[in-house]
């Protein structure tokens, strides 16, 4: 059902978009927001694809584990990756730009959504981004960023620090 069949010279983009729209489905986030997405883009998510194949995609697909903000981001990603004209280089550039603006908590949300919707590439890229973000950061920074409260006693924490004192050398200051 590739829209490009209708578009042999590959120049006129508008009919393509409309074609996609005609076979759109609606994704509903946990907070009730609804997003329409072309089937080709949605199919990049293995989870949604399975739902479509199981024919529960008649109307609205509820995604109770994804909130609206995250879903909007995921859809932006899917749309780009389903774009017919986009080269791998374009996509790579897009991914870079797409992820660079996100805070860690947003990244975690997107990673979870990517995992839940089974979008391999997105999941992998986002994880990589989180990993890079944690590079050389202090324990306190990590706790703050991931909103974790330490359940160690002071002695236990001291023990780890003592055992691996070298791992604490030259850590970035929390200011940045």
């Amino acid at each position: 059902m590739a829209p490009k069949n209708k578009n042999p010279n590959g120049e006129n983009v508008v009919p393509e978009v409309q074609q996609k729209k005609t076979q759109a489905l609606i994704l509903k986030s946990s907070d009730g927001e609804e997003f329409s997405i072309s089937k080709s883009a949605a199919g990049l998510s293995v989870a949604i694809k399975n739902m479509m194949e199981d024919d529960c995609a008649g109307g609205v697909i509820p995604l109770p584990l994804v909130d609206g903000g995250t879903l909007a981001r995921v859809i932006t990603y899917l749309n780009k990756h389903a774009e017919d004209g986009a080269s791998d280089e374009d996509k790579r550039k897009f991914d870079e730009e797409f992820l660079s603006g996100m805070e860690v908590d947003v990244l975690c949300d997107v990673a979870l959504a990517g995992n839940y919707l089974d979008i391999r590439g997105l999941f992998h890229d986002v994880c990589q981004r989180i990993v890079n973000g944690m590079k050389n950061k202090s324990v306190e920074w990590v706790r703050k960023t991931f909103r974790i409260e330490s359940d160690f006693t002071a002695e236990e924490e001291e023990q780890i620090k003592k055992e691996y004192a070298w791992a604490w050398e030259g850590v970035d200051s929390d200011a940045d």
């Binding site: 950061k137 706790r143 780890i160």
Partner: peptide, 9 residues
């Protein structure tokens, strides 16, 4: 980084 992460919780 792994070792420091282990001191988080």
């Amino acid at each position: 980084d792994n070792i420091r992460a282990s001191a988080v919780c």
